[in-house]
Simulated scan of single mutants.
Amino acid sequence: MSLRVFIRRPTAEDYQGLLSLHQRSQDFHFPWVFPPLNEQECKDYINRCQNEDFEGLLICHSTNNKIIGVANLSQIFYRAFQNAYLGYYVDVNFAGQGFMSEGVRLAIDYAFYTLGLHRVEANIQPENTASINLVKRLRFTKEGFSQRYLKINGEWRDHERWALTFEDWV
Score class of each variant (00 low, 15 high):
residue 14 D to K: 08
residue 94 F to M: 08
residue 13 E to M: 11
residue 95 A to W: 08
residue 108 I to H: 04
residue 51 N to I: 13
residue 71 A to W: 02
residue 107 A to T: 05
residue 45 Y to N: 09
residue 146 S to F: 00
residue 109 D to K: 15
residue 126 P to R: 06
residue 87 G to E: 12
residue 127 E to Q: 14
residue 25 S to A: 09
residue 19 L to T: 08
residue 77 F to Q: 14
residue 168 D to V: 04
residue 138 L to R: 02
residue 152 I to P: 10
residue 95 A to R: 05
residue 32 W to V: 00
residue 13 E to D: 11
residue 92 V to Q: 15
residue 25 S to R: 06
residue 133 N to P: 00
residue 84 A to E: 07
residue 139 R to I: 08
residue 90 V to K: 08
residue 49 C to Q: 09
residue 6 F to N: 13
residue 149 Y to Q: 11
residue 15 Y to K: 03
residue 55 E to Q: 13
residue 76 I to W: 14
residue 58 L to A: 05
residue 59 I to Y: 06
residue 161 R to K: 09
residue 59 I to C: 06
residue 106 L to W: 04
residue 118 H to C: 03
residue 92 V to G: 09
residue 10 P to D: 03
residue 150 L to S: 13
residue 81 F to Y: 13
residue 39 E to R: 10
residue 26 Q to Y: 12
residue 105 R to E: 12
residue 79 R to W: 09
residue 11 T to F: 13
residue 39 E to M: 08
residue 3 L to R: 03
residue 20 S to N: 15
residue 45 Y to C: 10
residue 86 L to M: 06
residue 133 N to V: 00
residue 114 T to D: 09
residue 5 V to K: 04
residue 87 G to Y: 07
residue 28 F to E: 09
residue 16 Q to N: 12
residue 90 V to H: 02
residue 24 R to C: 01
residue 147 Q to W: 04
residue 67 I to W: 06
residue 134 L to S: 03
residue 146 S to M: 04
residue 127 E to N: 12
residue 42 C to P: 01
residue 35 P to I: 07
residue 158 D to P: 08
residue 128 N to P: 05
residue 107 A to D: 03
residue 118 H to K: 05
residue 60 C to P: 13
residue 5 V to N: 00
residue 125 Q to V: 03
residue 155 E to P: 09
residue 109 D to Y: 10
residue 128 N to K: 12
residue 150 L to E: 15
